[in-house]
């Protein structure tokens, strides 16, 4: 079932086009990551989905309802980038309030805060919290009432790697129960394999969409290979691999995906000259940088 559908979505601010004809559909239980540099249009897209700002052209539907309508807001949870709360309130008071706004039971606040690891700090004022703790309060409010659609703007930006892992585990649970999740990030390495699909935005346009594997294959970036010669065999090894650059006591060369097997055979043939070797696939950030560059 389609929870969110965007068609030809366009947003202009004066002469500037922030979002340009974007199509996107999210099914129930799907996790989609929205990638792009600052200013690529991620936050604009999210605000349109939430009905906070009107579209200049195109349309958004949340389970068939207009964005920002009472029903759509009832179905949607949002975690803004750098989420903020009134500093004089405690997390428990804030979450109780949000529970009441969604027609929930305020006494569930404790359990929800426990879930995001704030059980012990629940009765401290949010003004005393660290950025990561505030982000957890933000996540806690987004978990209220099992939303059908979750919109998360840079959700892991203030979190350490351990918290990030816990965060994605929570999202997995939600997705498994049918929540469609749209989250944004400016780094591919942050979302990794935790999402089903990636959408790359650049200058307001959708420039790539697919699974990480599909994007990796499409980018077809070369592998990087490091060869470390045995003592006294450096010159011989350099002659065997004339295309390699020398430096830091090792030889470095690149190799297209399609020529990987041939190179492996050459390495095996010269094994007596080598102490060690490493084959490095292109990093996630390399792939992302490549896609963004190609779009520009």
């Amino acid at each position: 079932m389609t929870i969110l559908s965007l068609s030809n979505l366009t947003k202009r601010f004066g002469a500037e086009t922030a979002l340009d004809g974007v199509d996107l559909a999210l099914a129930a239980g799907e996790r989609v990551a929205l990638l792009g540099h600052n200013g690529a249009g991620k936050t604009t897209l999210m605000k349109l989905v939430l009905g906070l700002i009107p579209a200049s052209a195109g349309s958004v539907e949340v389970a068939g309802h207009a964005p920002g309508s009472a029903i759509a807001r009832g179905l949607t949870a949002y975690l803004p980038e750098n989420v903020a709360f009134h500093p004089s309130l405690t997390a428990r008071e804030q979450i109780r309030h949000y529970l009441r706004l969604r027609g929930g039971d305020p006494s569930e606040a404790g359990a929800i805060l426990e879930k995001v690891g704030l059980g012990a700090a629940a009765d401290r004022r949010i003004g005393t919290y660290s950025k990561g703790m505030r982000q957890r309060v933000g996540l806690a409010q987004a978990l209220i009432g099992r939303p059908r659609l979750m919109v998360l703007d840079e959700p892991t930006s203030g979190l350490d790697p351990v918290s990030r892992g816990e965060f994605y585990a929570l999202l997995d649970d939600l997705a498994a129960s049918g929540t469609a999740i749209l989250l944004s990030s400016h780094a591919l390495s942050e979302v990794e394999v935790k999402t089903d699909r990636l959408v790359v935005l650049a200058h307001g346009r959708k420039v790539a969409e697919g699974t990480l594997e599909a994007l990796r294959a499409e980018a077809a970036l070369p592998l990087t290979v490091h060869l470390r010669p045995r003592k006294g065999r450096g010159t011989a090894l350099a002659q065997a691999f004339p295309e390699a650059r020398e430096g830091a006591g090792r030889l470095t060369l690149t190799c297209a995906q399609s020529e990987k097997m041939a190179l492996m055979a050459r390495i095996t043939g010269s094994a007596d000259m080598m102490a060690d070797f490493d084959v490095l696939p292109p990093s996630l950030d390399d792939i992302y940088a490549h896609i963004s560059r190609r779009a520009a």
Partner: peptide, 14 residues
């Protein structure tokens, strides 16, 4: 200024 308004307006609260 605090940045709390966008979140409030996404709640089912007119």
């Amino acid at each position: 200024e605090r940045g709390t308004l966008p979140l409030h307006l996404t709640y089912p609260l007119g």
